[in-house]
Every structure is written in structure tokens, then in C-alpha cells.
């Protein structure tokens, strides 16, 4: 019962994260989903036998099924590699869903205490041709060099 509920919580949380904006959120949602699915696979081996499959001649009556464990082990490592790849996609290329604010005119989910600190009052994005501003911004930032690098 506890496993089933844990799986439900992880899957629901993962799916909710994946359906919101921002690549990092999607990636974290993907990780939660991985956790949930891995738990399902382990549960498929049966949660009533929990002995470690180690040492000479383990007792089949009390030892956990080793086959799902092997599956999950490889699954973890593969999903790790995919997670890294997804993370790389979040920070390569042009400004996109993760960085691009003006595209939709939405505000950041800024914690209120920082808003109070000032500086983040977002003006209506379409007021001054946000697209143009963004383009100029990202281009100039690409040409930018670290200050010490100039000979």
C-alpha cells in the first residue's frame, strides 16, 4: 500500500512538473517520473521479500527478486544520462522557454520578498517592442567578452 501511494505521489508530481513551463521544471518532473516508474518495477518483484540478494545461496523465501533490481539499476543510469542531456538542452541555443520572458509577456514567479526589495517591477512587455529589445540584448551578450580578456 505504501509503495503504491508513493508511486502515485511521484508520478502525479512528476507529470504536474512536466506540464508546466521551463525546461528545468520539465527535467525535474522527468526525474520524479523515473523514481515512480523504478519503484513500480521493484514492486513488481514483490515487496514481501526484502532480503538482499547477496552472499552464497540466499534463501528464495525471504530474498528480494534480483531481476527487477538489475532492470532498475540500468534504468537509473540511463535516465541519468538522458537527464543530463535534457539539462544541456535547457542551456544551449537561443533564448527559449526557460529564459525568454517577453515571448509571452508573462511575469516571473518571483517570491514576494524580492519584489519588495525592488528592481523587478516588470513593465508591460509589449510597450517598447520587447522582441527587438530581446534580440538586441541576446546578440550583444553573445558578442560580449569577459572584461579581462581584452588585450
Amino acid at each position: 500500500m505504501a509503495i503504491a501511494l508513493t508511486v502515485g505521489v511521484l508520478v502525479a508530481g512528476g507529470v504536474f512538473m512536466m506540464l508546466r513551463r521551463g525546461m528545468v521544471r520539465v527535467v525535474i518532473g522527468f526525474m520524479f517520473l523515473n523514481h515512480g516508474v523504478n519503484l513500480i518495477i521493484l514492486a513488481a518483484g514483490g515487496a514481501d521479500r526484502r532480503g538482499e540478494a547477496l552472499g552464497g545461496s540466499p534463501d528464495p523465501a525471504t530474498t528480494a527478486d534480483p531481476l527487477p533490481q538489475a532492470f532498475v539499476l540500468t534504468a537509473i543510469v540511463i535516465s541519468f544520462a538522458v537527464t543530463i542531456y535534457l539539462l544541456v538542452l535547457a542551456v544551449t541555443g537561443d533564448a527559449d522557454d526557460d529564459t525568454d520572458l517577453e515571448l509571452t509577456g508573462r511575469e516571473m514567479e518571483t517570491p514576494t520578498f524580492i519584489e519588495d526589495a525592488g528592481g523587478s517591477t516588470a513593465l508591460p512587455a509589449d510597450e517598447l517592442g520587447p522582441r527587438a529589445v530581446r534580440r538586441t540584448g541576446s546578440h550583444s551578450s553573445r558578442r560580449r567578452r569577459p572584461p579581462g580578456g581584452r588585450p
Binding site: A4, G8, V9, A12, L39, I40, A43, G46, P60
Partner: peptide, 19 residues
């Protein structure tokens, strides 16, 4: 989806001996 996954896990596991 979460409810579906939980239900599936609950209903489909722990119902047999070692494979």
C-alpha cells in the same frame, strides 16, 4: 495519472510468489 499509477501498482503487485 498519479491515481492510475497508484491503483495499478496496488492491484498488480504483491499477488504472486517469487518469479
Amino acid at each position: 495519472v498519479g491515481a492510475g499509477a497508484a491503483a495499478a501498482t496496488w492491484l498488480l503487485t504483491d499477488r504472486r510468489a517469487l518469479s
